[in-house]
Amino acid sequence: MPKGYIIGHITVKNPEAYKEYVERDTPILLGLGGSFIVRGGQSEVLEGESLERHVVIEFPSYEAALAAFNDPEYQEVAEIRRRNAESTIIVVEGA
């Protein structure tokens, strides 16, 4: 079965407040079967436009990734990200 991924492209607007999101989302997503593959780090846009920060979280399946994103506990914490960052979040099935 193909794995599922949550991919986030994020530009943090309020770094101090965003720290709470990172502290609280990590245990939730790990507990839902996620594994952080990419979390920030150096990047370079070679074509097109993008936000500043990139995150890739691997899940056992596409359905598990969707369920994790839609989890009520995660959605509560996601409001912190929405208030303090610009973001694009994508759920994708792996090859």
Rank of each mutant, 00 (worst) to 15 (best):
A17N: 09
T88I: 15
I57N: 02
A95S: 09
I57A: 09
H54I: 15
G40Y: 07
E23M: 13
V56L: 15
G33W: 08
K3F: 12
E76Y: 11
A68T: 04
E63D: 15
P15T: 00
D25Q: 13
I6A: 13
S43G: 08
D71I: 09
H9Y: 14
T26P: 02
Y62S: 01
D71M: 11
I28S: 05
E63W: 08
P15I: 01
V56G: 01
G31K: 02
I6V: 15
K3D: 15
R81S: 11
V56Y: 10
E58W: 03
N84I: 08
Y5M: 10
P60M: 06
A78R: 09
M1T: 05
L46A: 04
I28F: 06
N84K: 01
K3P: 03
Q75L: 15
L30E: 14
K3E: 15
E44I: 06
E73G: 04
H9A: 13
I80D: 09
I80C: 07
E23R: 13
K13D: 06
V22N: 04
I10C: 10
G34S: 11
G33Q: 07
G94V: 00
H54D: 05
E93L: 01
L30A: 09
V38H: 08
R81I: 12
E63K: 10
L30Y: 10
K13T: 08
Y74P: 07
R39P: 02
I28L: 11
I90P: 03
D25H: 13
L66D: 00
R39Q: 04
K3V: 07
N14F: 10
K3G: 12
N14P: 00
E76N: 11
G33Y: 09
G40F: 11
L51H: 00
A95F: 15
V55E: 00
N14W: 01
E79N: 04
K19Y: 07
V91R: 10
P60T: 11
S35Q: 12
V55W: 00
Y74D: 08
G31I: 06
K19T: 05
S87T: 05
S87P: 00
L30R: 10
A85G: 04
Y62G: 00
I89N: 03
A85C: 02
A64T: 02
L29P: 01
E16L: 04
V12M: 09
